[in-house]
């Protein structure tokens, strides 16, 4: 029986946003051309695509892990969610300080859309953490 059935709707909306973000990024990786990137950048398109692919794989694996651990233990689901949230925030901060100085992403189009949706993904993950940590009715 899914222990996660005790979880409120907001949690499920947050996890669906996470999966939707993964799908959108996957779609962008398959379809969009990174030739739009500025030619004066330090890093080449292949490297940026590789990095995005690896990050997407980690994020998808993390979201699947949350869904999987929810089936067995809320405690482990909480740990996985917190770890994934910390990683997403660390990645976002690190990109602002390092990556965006080396890669100039296009200001318009689907790549810009994915970039602008990253804070929403982080908010969703933070919300999931709050639900798992502070909801009083949740028991393992």
């Amino acid at each position: 029986m899914f222990k996660s059935l005790q979880l409120p709707k907001a949690f499920w909306v947050s996890i669906i946003i996470g999966y939707a973000f993964c799908l959108l990024t996957f779609f962008v990786l398959l379809t969009a051309s990174l030739d739009l990137l500025a030619p004066s950048q330090v890093l080449n398109n292949h490297t940026v695509t590789k990095l995005t692919g690896i990050r997407l794989a980690i994020l998808t694996f993390g979201l699947f892990s949350i869904s999987f651990t929810l089936k067995y233990s809320l405690m482990y689901a909480k740990y996985v969610t917190v770890a994934l949230t910390v990683w997403a925030i660390a990645m976002y901060v690190d990109d602002h300080f390092v990556l965006y100085n080396m890669v100039e992403y296009p200001q318009e189009g689907v790549i810009a859309l994915v970039q602008s949706l990253r804070p929403i993904l982080i908010i969703s993950l933070i919300w999931m953490c709050f639900e798992l940590i502070f909801s009083p009715h949740l028991t393992d």
């Binding site: 330090v42 080449n44 292949h46 490297t47 990095l51 690896i54 770890a83 660390a90 690190d94 390092v98």
Partner: peptide, 22 residues
């Protein structure tokens, strides 16, 4: 400590991927 650990691990992965070609 957890935040530092995750941040540094992420930095290491980024460095390995981004700068292995350079």
């Amino acid at each position: 400590c957890l935040v530092i650990l995750v941040y540094v691990l992420n930095s290491t992965i980024d460095n390995t991927i981004l700068f292995s070609d350079l």
